[in-house]
Structure formats: C-alpha cells, structure tokens
Simulated scan of single mutants.
Amino acid sequence: MEEVNQTTVTEFILNGLTENPELQVPLFLIFLGLYLITIVGNLGMIILIMFSSQLHTPMYYLLSCQSTVITPKMLVNFVTEKNVIPYPECMAQFYFFCSFAVAECHMLAAMAYDLYVAISNPLLYNVIMSYQVCLWMIAWVYGMGLLSATAHTVFLLRVLFCKANIIRHYFCDLFPLLELSCSSTFINEVLALSFSAFNIIIPAMTILGSYMFIIFSILHIQSTGGRSKAFSTCSSHILAVAIFYGSLAFMYLQPSSVNSLTQGKLSSVFYTIVVPMLNPMIYSLRNKDVKVALNELLENISFFLTKNSFP
C-alpha cells in the first residue's frame, strides 16, 4: 500500500489568476499593457544610463538590473485552456523569481541609504557613495538574492511531488508548491519564515533608520522649497516600500496553514508586476538628473538625425 500513488510529478498545471472565463481576455489585455510598460520603461532607463555619465550612481546601477520572470507565463495562461509548465522550468522560474524578489528587498534599503546621503550630506555624496561602495552595495543586493534563492531551491528539490499537479497560483511560488507535496515540508517552511524575516525585517529596519535621519535633516532645511523638494524625492521611494513590503509580508511572514492562497494571488500581483512597472517612474522620471539626461540624449539624437538628413 505504501507504493500506491508514488509516481513522481514531471509537470505542473498553473491554475492562473482567475478561473472565470469572462475575465480571461480583459485581464490578458490589462497585464499585457502593464508588461509592455515595464519592458519599455526599464529598457529605456538602461539605455539612458548607458549613455549618460551623470546617472552612473549606485541607485541607477541597481535599478537597471531589475527584470521580470513571471508575466510572460501568466499571459500564456490567459489564452490557453491548460497552462502546463515542466518540473525543471517550474524550479527555474521559482529560482529566478526568488533571486529578484530578495534583491528588490535589499535594493530598497540601499536606495534609502542613498537618499539619506544625498539629502543629509549632498556635498560629500560622491565621496561617501564612491565606486567601491557602489560595488559592495550591488554585491550585497544580488548576493543575498542568489543565496536565498539557492537555499530555497535546493531544499525544494528534495521535496517529493506525487499528489495532484495543479498549482493554485499563476506562477511557481513556494507555498503553492509545498501544498502539493507528499513528503515533509517542515524544513522548507522554517527556512521560508527565517529567510523572509531576515530579508524583510533587516532591510525594513535599515529603511526606517535612514528615514529617521532623513526627516531630521529635512527639518533643518531653512527654505520651504528645499523641504518640499526633499519630501517629493522621498515620497516615490516610500510608495514603493509600502507596496512591495506590505504585499510581500502578507504572503510570506505567516505559516502556510494560515496563508490564504486566494488572497496571496492578489498580494503577489503587487510585488511581481506592479512594483517592477513602477520602478522607472518612481525612481527616475521624477528625478531631475534623469530629466536632464533624457533631454540631452534626445537633443543628441535630433542633431545626429538632422546632420545625416542633409549631406
């Protein structure tokens, strides 16, 4: 009797964001639009950073490395009757998603420190945020992402899947996968809570500490315009922190037995799709340096086109 139903799962079926047929097409169009905005925005920022030396700062180095690994497969789910994902592809999707999600946590903390230095010590900014410091920040952000993703994936590969293969989610996430396990997942859940606490609480404390010093510095700014500009610069970062950490904490800082996967789908939309789409706008389009760099690039392109139009 022990050998019954022990066939190893070789592929999964993604349940998707909704099972309502009437919502499939509208949701497909909505998320396709969001994905195109994300791609255009991030690629545009990468090109702008490459050609503008004034944007070669830690904040923009970190921003340019963000990516999405969830949306294309989710879009397929809206237009196909059954969205099948092979086991190796599912594990790979989870690995890269986990890497970028954890990196985003620490990136937000790094940007909070970057804002603190820019507002509190503007004259010493280039000294404090040196090239070496920039490299250490990048190494920490993506090092933590790769470390966390590797640990989770290694232990996830040890889990035996021999029950139903329908994942009640629109991508291969940890808790929906553990729900299908027919072996013990105690270590996976402990690991998830431990890493989630570290990767959410530590960066959150860094952000909170940075903003305490930022507020203290802003209160010492004499001009009203200077205070308004400083608060405006911080507001976009605060918005990203609230959306990202709020939705991430709701999904991961609780045991899987308490976590509602239906509510988890909604919260995960924010940190997998909305925040990557907002990144270029909240960090860049409202920034004066980016606007200047964009105007210079457009002027150079216009000059080049004009010069080549009249030989």
Rank of each mutant, 00 (worst) to 15 (best):
G209T: 02
C172R: 03
C182S: 07
S184W: 13
T185W: 08
S183T: 15
L174T: 10
E179P: 09
M212T: 10
I218D: 01
F213S: 07
S184V: 09
L180T: 01
T206L: 07
A192G: 04
E179N: 09
C172Y: 00
I187Y: 04
H220N: 13
S181H: 03
C182L: 02
N199T: 05
L180D: 01
F198I: 14
S196Y: 03
P203Y: 02
S181T: 10
L219S: 10
F186Q: 00
I215H: 15
L180Y: 02
Q222Y: 13
F213A: 07
L208T: 14
V190G: 06
F213W: 06
C182D: 05
A204N: 08
I187W: 03
I201G: 02
L219T: 14
A197C: 10
S183G: 15
F175W: 04
M205D: 00
F195S: 01
I201W: 01
F213V: 11
L174Y: 09
L191I: 13
F213H: 10
F213M: 07
E179L: 14
C182I: 13
T206G: 06
Q222N: 07
I214P: 07
G209N: 09
Y211P: 13
E189Q: 11
S217H: 08
S181M: 04
N188G: 05
D173F: 00
S217E: 01
I202D: 07
E179D: 12
P203V: 14
